[in-house]
Amino acid sequence: MHPFAYLRASGVEDALDAGHRGGRYIAGGTTLVDLMRQTVERPGALVDISGLPLREVTGTSQGGLRIGALVLMAEAAAHTAVRSAYPVIAQALEQSASPQLRNMATVGGNIMQRPRCPYFRDVTAACNRREPGSGCSARHGFNRSHAILGASDHCAAAHPSDLAVALAALDAVVCLAGPDESRNVPLADFLLRPGDTPHREQDIRTGELITAVEIPAHPQPLKSGYLKVRDRQSYAFALASAAVALHLRDGVVGQARVAAGGVGTVPWRLPAVERHLIGERPSRRLWKEAAARAAEGARPLRHNRFKTELLKRTVERQLHTVGGGT
C-alpha cells in the first residue's frame, strides 16, 4: 500500500472541497482498501465520507424512492420500502458479497465498484483499465468471468455489481453533488462501456460525490425479482444474472424491465426481450421466446462461450419466476 493522506469530511461541502483537490472518497472501503493493498489503487489522499448525512431511504415527491449513497447494502436490503416496492433490489443485494461485506459497503460505493478481472487486480499483468495503453491480458488469457456484451478490444471485464443490474432495470438515476453544480445522471449513462477508454468507468467529474440513487415511480403492482447464477451458493460473482420487473394489466404484460449481469461490461438492459413481452399473456412459451433474444450481439471469448446460452436460460428462468404462467 502506498502512503496516503487521510481526511475525515465533516460535511458535504467539506468533502466536495477535499474531493475537488484530488482526494478519493472512501466510505465502506471494501473495494478501495483491497485495491490499495494490491497497489492497483494509489490515491494520494482519502476523504472519509462515512460520517456524512446521506444514509436515509425516503420517498420522492413523484412517488419514487431515494436511497442515500451511504445507506449500507445490508440496510437497503432490509428496508421495508425497498422490500415491498422493489424486491428485485433487495434480492440483488442479498445475493451480493457476504454478510460482513454488506454490513460495511454502501450503495454509492457498490455502483462505483471496480471490475473483478484477475489481470486488473494483478499489477504485474497488462491491463488497459489500470494502465491505459498497456494492453489487455484477458482478451487472450483466462476470460471465463468476462463480458460477452459491450466489450471492446481494449477491455472485456464484466461489471461486478448485482445492485446496479437491478437499478438499471428500474431506470434508476444517480444523484451527484459537485463543487459547482448538482446533476442527475441515469445509471445507464453513468456507467460507461470500455470503448477505447476503459479506464473511464463512470461519468463522474473530479470532486463529484454521489449523494443518492433514485428509483422513479413505476406502474403498480410491479412484480420483480433477481436471479444470480454462480459457481457456489454464496460469496461469488455472477456468471449470469437477471433482474426482471413486470407490470401485468388485464392479464397481459403492460410493462417489462429486464437487465442482465455477469455478462456485460456494464449492467445490460435487454430491450429486445422487453419489447417481445409487451401486450402478451404470461406463458412458458412467451418467456422462452423472449429470452431467446437476450444474447443478441454477444461476442464471447475463449473461456466464456457458455455465457451466451446461460444468459438466455437465466433470463427465461427469471421471467417465469416473476411472471408465472404455464
Partner: peptide, 8 residues
C-alpha cells in the same frame, strides 16, 4: 477467485 466451498 479460487473458489472454496462456503457454508451454503
Amino acid at each position: 477467485d479460487y473458489l472454496l466451498p462456503v457454508n451454503a
